[in-house]
Amino acid sequence: SHLLVVEPEKIYAMPDPTMPDGDIKALTTLCDLADRELVVIIGWAKHIPGFSSLSLADQMSLLQSAWMEILVLSIVFRSLACEEELVYAEDYVVDEEHARLSGLLDLHVAILPLVRRYKKLSMEREEFVTLKAIALANSDSMHIEDVEAVQRLQDSLHEALQDLEGAHNTEDPRRAGKLLMTLPLLRQTAAKAVQHFYSIKVQGKVPMHKLFLEMLEAKA
């Protein structure tokens, strides 16, 4: 219930109406959106019980590892009500045709299997917020100073997921496990997304804000 309360407000993509449609516009819109979402994600992480008592260095390491998984999981959750469309933001819903026309097809095709996976499970909001926090705590950064403190954070979030399923989904005793088994696909999908945006950064045709660049470089 705490994670539900601290769940961030929606943010909007607000594509620049003066830019001509095409891949530069689409990528500029997504990079700008991602930069603003990162600010929100960093603020959100601080409200996860136990996160702020980690050292600053460990907080940074977890976020630098997991930020794209958190972004992707959020897009996927927003897209659960749609058919083969990705809801990057409420005002930026992309279908396959739009994705093709705006150079987003690789990303689109990479993310859809995850949408299908969570649709099959009918992931609920409570499960989404818990899994998002678990993805952060379970990010397998190579640079953790206090491994035991991070383990305690993982344990408390794991316990929250089990409590949730124990209370609400008693008809399927394996539901928590089924949700956790989606995390490898989330990591794989986020890695593809990072690669996609890293190659866009290298091409240099799309402006990127400093925080997004900083987080991309941390994954390089």
Binding site: V39, I42, K46, L56, L63, Q64, L211, E214, E217, A218
Partner: peptide, 15 residues
């Protein structure tokens, strides 16, 4: 840390 100064600053902000 110098390389990741925005993340560092945002985490240090109290809000």
């Amino acid at each position: 840390k110098e390389k990741h100064k925005i993340l560092h600053r945002l985490l240090q902000n109290s809000t």
